[in-house]
């Protein structure tokens, strides 16, 4: 018998501290597998966000930098422009990318920086304990909208892929989900493309991954996965929003 899923060498071999069932762990593994498959580990520099994935710098077995909340795209820009021979990715949550760091997101896309962004949309601020995110659904409760997000008080959730698709510089935008195993496989394909684009100097590539935060959603991981499929995907439809082939 043969082991068919060896642990990727681009991931440090130690348990990750994410909560049970959290999507961050799944996406970490996918990125590491892709680094292995594309053989880019030794020239990849990753940018860890502020958010639950702040510890990404411990988990990815490549050069890493951890910077201020939301500024990943600016940091990645600085690295990529200084070291174009490196593959640079920024890993960000929804508060990080779509709230405090929205300007950096939009402008790095507008400049079509040749970087790869992995955007984990879990519709909540995980790390700080479940406050409302820019992506929190209407009616969804959080610790800062305990009665549910309302248009009158909180406005509408932001659809990042749809918004960035307006920019010519955003060369590749895809939204996927890791709520099911086939979704995980599709997510890997998308992220791999986002890295391959950078190798091919295509420009700004981002994959938005619909993920779970069972802990702050007050659900079991299985309920959380169902919430993604039943509640999130109708608002955040999966698919390719821009591709270089277009």
């Amino acid at each position: 018998m043969k082991l068919i899923n060896k642990k990727p060498s681009s991931l440090v071999d130690k348990p990750m501290r994410y909560c049970p069932g959290c999507g961050h762990g799944i996406v970490h593994r996918l990125i590491a597998e892709i680094m292995d498959e594309l053989d880019i580990r030794e020239h990849t520099v990753g940018v860890a966000p502020v958010g639950c994935a702040v510890f990404a710098d411990e988990y990815f077995n490549c050069d890493m930098i951890q910077g201020p909340h939301g500024r990943g795209p600016a940091i990645a820009t600085g690295i990529k422009r200084s070291k174009p021979e490196c593959i640079v990715f920024s890993y960000q949550g929804d508060g990080d990318l779509a709230s405090i760091g929205m300007a950096e997101t939009v402008h790095s896309a507008a400049r079509s920086e040749n970087i790869t962004i992995i955007f984990i949309n879990n519709a909540i601020y995980g790390m700080t304990g479940g406050q409302m995110a820019p992506t929190t659904l209407l009616g969804q409760t959080s610790s800062t909208c305990p009665a549910g997000r309302s248009v009158a008080v909180n406005g509408y959730p932001i659809k990042v892929c749809e918004m960035l698709a307006q920019l010519e510089g955003a060369r590749y935008l895809e939204r996927t989900s890791v709520s099911t195993a086939p979704g995980v496989i599709k997510t890997k394909k998308a992220i791999k493309k986002a890295f391959q684009n950078q190798i091919d100097c295509v420009g700004f590539s981002m994959v938005e991954v619909l993920s779970t935060c069972p802990t702050n959603w007050g659900m079991t991981p299985v309920q959380g996965a169902r919430f993604v499929d039943e509640k999130m995907t109708p608002i955040y439809p999966l698919g390719v929003f821009r591709s270089p082939e277009q």
């Binding site: 500024r71 600016a74 940091i75 600085g78 422009r81 402008h107």
Partner: peptide, 26 residues
């Protein structure tokens, strides 16, 4: 070298954070 007109001072300093982490003078 590289010149970037950043979208804000916040972005500019963070571009420096990344660039100088690669060891160059910024």
């Amino acid at each position: 070298g590289s010149f970037i007109q950043a979208e804000s001072e916040v972005a500019a300093i963070n571009m420096l954070y990344g660039a100088s982490a690669t060891g160059i003078r910024t």
